[in-house]
């Protein structure tokens, strides 16, 4: 049993409910024990840092201090939300890198009777623990309904693979973790060139035109590559691409229909869990057609897979072996 201190983050209870529900659904199969950090608070997202530095880091550090107190058979804090993951990791890293920051933050924490020593807990993202602790072999062994024929665009967004203070990810630009996880479910993974591009973040709120353009690029690229569905690991990405896709279409006079769901939702249906229990139906851009492609609630129709072409012309360089944090090296054939 892999045990983690669990920091759900605010969106898991709201806009990213599908993420939370699907995570709970696959948890038994993955033998994960999640112990929620008692009385955790908001990480401040990308907003508090703009206002006032020391309070922003103190807000984050309260969670770290609570987690460190609660260490009980594990020192790993698992966060499924990208922004939460980054903020927790960043506070831990900068408090150590800049001792002056650490001192000030601890001065503030002391007012609440708390203290945090940087490095006391490990902060990791859900995808990282699934790949490196639980392992793709275990995931494969749980698949009862392979996602054969479903063309998936893996979309990681920004804040998990970057800046990656603890160097846990295979790459900043084109990390392979989410691709490999989707492949383990039997999906056809497209080489999505924008897999770590930005969804617009809070610009949907404060500068919608900037955000619509970023959303358009992502949805257009996924459609151009022939994806049936996008999967994400970030509540903000899901929210922007799902809830604002309609507005984006209105803004540009386009007609994109690109469903985006959490990777845990596809894991759940591959594990044989009912789509509703996996949080399907909560998305605003319906994933009905995508589900139909894997024989759920609709007749099966297979897109022809292009035959592998014989190499001609000049040879391509071999891909660089990707190294996972667990030390496992993956060489693509």
């Amino acid at each position: 049993m892999n045990k983690y201190l669990f920091y759900p983050g605010c969106s898991m209870e709201g806009s990213a409910r599908a993420y939370y529900e699907s995570l709970k659904a696959i948890q038994p199969a993955l033998t994960m024990e999640l112990e929620e950090i008692e009385d955790w608070n908001c990480c401040g997202a990308t907003e508090y840092l703009s206002i006032n530095l020391i309070p922003a880091y103190s807000l984050i550090a309260r969670n770290l201090a609570l987690a460190a107190q609660q260490k009980n058979g594990t020192d790993t804090v698992m966060a499924p939300c990208s922004a939460c993951y980054l903020n927790l990791e960043k506070a831990d890293y900068y408090m150590a890198e800049r001792p002056a920051l650490g001192e000030k933050v601890n001065e503030a924490l002391a007012a609440g009777g708390l203290h945090y020593e940087p490095g006391s807990v490990q902060i990791r993202h859900l995808v990282d623990v699934i790949i490196n602790d639980i392992g793709l072999e275990t995931v494969k062994s749980k698949v009862v309904r392979p996602l054969t024929g479903l063309r998936v665009a893996p979309y990681l967004g920004c804040m998990v693979p970057r800046p990656d203070f603890a160097k846990r990810w295979s790459d900043h630009e084109h990390p392979s973790e989410l691709d490999d996880l989707m492949k383990a479910l039997g999906a056809e993974v497209i080489d999505f060139p924008m897999k770590t591009s930005c969804c617009g973040g809070h610009m949907t709120q404060i500068g919608p035109e900037t955000a619509y353009e970023l959303i358009r690029r992502l949805v257009a690229a996924a459609e151009e590559q022939g994806a049936d569905i996008m999967v994400t690991m970030c509540p903000m990405c899901q929210m922007n691409l799902d809830a604002y896709q309609g507005e984006t279409n209105r803004h540009f006079g386009t007609n994109y229909h690109m469903p985006i769901v959490f990777f845990t939702q596809l894991m759940a249906v591959a594990f044989g869990i009912d789509p509703k229990q996996a949080g399907f139906g909560l998305e605003l851009v319906s994933a009905k057609d995508a589900l139909a492609r894997i024989g759920l609630k609709a007749p099966e129709e297979q897109k022809p897979t292009p035959a592998r072409k014989k190499p001609e012309g000049l040879p391509m360089p071999k891909p660089l072996p990707k190294k996972y944090a667990s030390g496992q090296t993956v060489v693509e054939e």
Binding site: C10, D39, W40, N52, Y57, L59, R62, K104, G112, L114
Partner: peptide, 21 residues
Amino acid sequence: NRIKNMDQLTAILEKAKTLEL
């Protein structure tokens, strides 16, 4: 949703606002 120990968080943030890096 509201956290239980709001007083603690308020005390931390009030103190933090008096500090500069």
